[in-house]
Design a protein around this nucleic acid. Structure first.
Length: 564
RNA sequence: GCGCCUAUAGCUCAAUCGGAUAGAGCAACGCCCUUCUAAGGCGUAGGUUGCAGGUUCGAUUCCUGCUGGGCGCGCCA
């Protein structure tokens, strides 16, 4: 309906221009806002306010003209029952009952597809997230990345994109060597307190689990690889490969428990093996943005907005991490992803400038702002009223698995996705665990379960819909019903907006609002009443509301239970 | 010192590419189960949107400068 009114306003502007009431050059950005207050109607528009100056009229005076012209349009008046000029010059639109209730049949007809759209036009998009190195279990920060990244993926799928979920990790290099040494030490019976324990070794107990499994000659199967231990504690390479596979499998299990699955696992080592790093370096040298200094090879990233140039090849001949990063992103581009979203922790934000600069320096026509980044701010964990310090090496941190076990998958996903990624998040374990009944996710799920219960009982009592079901909708006249109708109609635009702005928390916010409207309605009006028309109408609205709650929860990856 | 993020009710957070009287939950207080699930609803109380300017019909939102918090600033990843 919003689009319907907007179209008429666009036509009206054209008409006003030809009537010389507005200058030909005027290009208004007309806002159609959902009103916050029912007294202001269903939608409000600012056309008269922004067009007043170009038209040389007072806003309210111009609004009078606009309203009169719109009112003269019969097709328009059928949908909009009333218009009011308010405040400084807003035009408030009040929808007709028909227009207001039409969403019910739309929802029931579209079912799980209600809210989906095709703004992505089936274009490919790649979303890289989590991308944790296999040096330990996933912690709560990875959990936030998993929740946000997966919800983004669902949002983009719902808006017509073809989504590839990708996980990038480093299976070689200094950190992995350190991991191998730590496992080796454990396998030889050493502990972190022993004198010969590797410097900066990983101290967590899970390292011992890896070591014992290695000694037992186990075979581990991760999503992307399979390795059998050869039990030789002097074979560091075998230890390394086994440890990587072991920890990858642990992460896979955590992610599975969290309801997150990836389409592609990409190994940093493959960039070297397949010559992509070498090819990228050559391209950068050929493009003329590199120079040698102090025995190292530098990239002039300052030409692309960086605050200092960056070393590409160290004096020891190895490449710095950002070279394979650039190679990896070039590879993404060459795989045909015109849209790529990297979801990562804010502690990696400095890589953005570097990677983009490197891609620009390649001179292969990659757009300047490519790829997109969604950075989530850090998660701090409170337990027993104190902040839990996260230290991987000391092994003291809250794992994603802990959270799933303690507060459940649904609540954890909701908590981590329900806040704007750009704001810091305090996850209070005790609160989440001890007050599970006050958790907003249950509030939403409860709304869904209540509606399911109503449907069940309607069925038991053989309350079938009346033949003139659509006409019954005119009976949806209570304040609570109007509020629910209004929210249902907003769902598609909410999904589009959340997808466009890459902000899953907008869905969480919407669902809370819809659940609140539903609970109010449920308490104020009895659904299973004697009046067959009212009953039919309410059952239809209940079914539509249940459907939208389910659709929204699905976007968050949270279950919609039939009963609680 | 520089860069990115951030500051909203006692606490945790919302607030539509700038809109009308800044909203929810938790915590507090008072009501509502003989009625479709009380994991719920209704009501009361709670605010100089960190501070100071600017832009305009209008600023929590945009700009500038301060102040506080987080994260980065390596020939580590």
């Amino acid at each position: 309906m919003k689009a319907f009114i907007s179209e008429h306003l666009d036509l009206l502007v054209t008409q006003l221009k030809s009537d010389r009431l507005l200058p030909e050059t005027f290009q208004p950005r007309i806002q159609m806002d959902n009103t916050k207050d029912k007294l202001h109607g269903d939608f409000a528009c600012n056309l008269a306010l922004i067009a007043a100056k170009p038209a040389g009229k007072k806003p309210r005076e111009l609004a009078e003209i606009i309203v009169a012209l719109l009112a003269a349009n019969a097709g328009f008046s059928q949908q909009v029952s009333k218009m009011e000029i308010a405040g400084p010059g807003f035009i408030n639109f009040f929808l007709s009952q028909d227009a207001l209730t039409s969403v019910v049949t739309q929802v029931l007809k579209a079912g799980e597809y209600f809210g989906r759209s095709n703004v992505g036009q089936n274009e490919k998009v790649q979303i890289e997230f989590v991308s944790a190195n296999p040096t330990g279990p996933l912690h709560i920060g990875h959990g936030r990345g998993a929740a946000v990244g997966d919800c983004l993926s669902r949002l983009l799928e719902a808006t017509g994109w073809q989504v590839t979920r990708e996980f990038y990790y480093n299976d070689a290099g200094a950190q992995i060597d350190n991991l191998a040494l730590s496992v080796q030490a454990r396998a030889k019976g050493l502990g972190p307190d022993d004198a010969s324990w590797p410097k900066d070794g990983y101290q967590g107990d899970y390292i011992n689990d890896v070591a014992q499994s290695f000694l037992a000659g186990n075979t581990v199967i991760a999503d992307d690889q399979q390795v059998t231990a050869n039990t030789d504690t002097d074979d560091l390479d075998a230890l390394r490969r086994f440890a990587v596979a072991f920890l990858r499998r642990e992460q896979d299990l955590d992610l599975k428990a969290f309801g997150v699955a990836f389409d592609v696992y990409y190994l940093e080592s493959s960039l070297y093996e397949e010559g992509l790093v070498a090819a990228t370096v050559k391209k950068l040298i050929d493009s003329g943005y590199t120079y040698e200094e102090g025995g190292a090879l530098w990239l002039r990233t300052t030409d692309f907005g960086d605050d200092k140039d960056r070393v590409m090849r160290k004096t020891d001949g190895g490449y710095t991490y950002f070279v394979p990063d650039v190679a990896y992103h070039l590879n993404k581009w060459q795989r045909g992803f015109k849209k790529v979203i990297n979801e990562q922790g804010a502690d990696h934000h400095s890589t953005i400038t570097r990677v983009r600069a490197g891609l620009q320096a390649l001179k292969v026509d990659i757009p300047e702002g490519w790829p997109d980044y969604v950075l989530h701010q850090m998660v701090t964990v409170m337990r027993d009223g104190e902040e839990v310090k996260i230290s991987k090496r000391a092994g003291s941190y809250v794992t994603l698995r802990d959270l799933i076990d303690e507060v459940g998958c649904d609540a954890t996903r909701y908590f981590l996705a329900a806040r704007a990624p750009s704001s810091q998040l305090t996850f209070d374990i005790d609160l989440a665990r001890s007050q599970t009944n006050d958790n907003p996710v249950y509030y939403i799920q409860y709304a869904h379960a209540r509606l399911c219960s109503v449907e069940r009982q309607a069925k038991e009592k053989n309350y079938s819909g009346s033949s003139d079901a659509i006409d019954c909708l005119a009976k949806l006249t209570t304040d609570q019903e109007q509020a629910v109708l209004n929210l249902l109609a907003r769902f598609p635009e909410t999904v589009k907006k959340a997808a466009r702005e890459l902000e899953p928390h907008q869905i969480a916010q919407y669902l809370r609002d819809l659940a609140a409207a539903m609970h109010s309605w449920y308490n104020a009006n009895q659904f299973l009443v004697e009046d067959v028309q009212v009953r039919t109408a309410r059952l239809m609205l209940a079914a539509a509301t249940r459907q939208v709650l389910a659709n929204g929860l699905d976007l968050l990856g949270v279950t919609a239970p039939d009963s609680m």
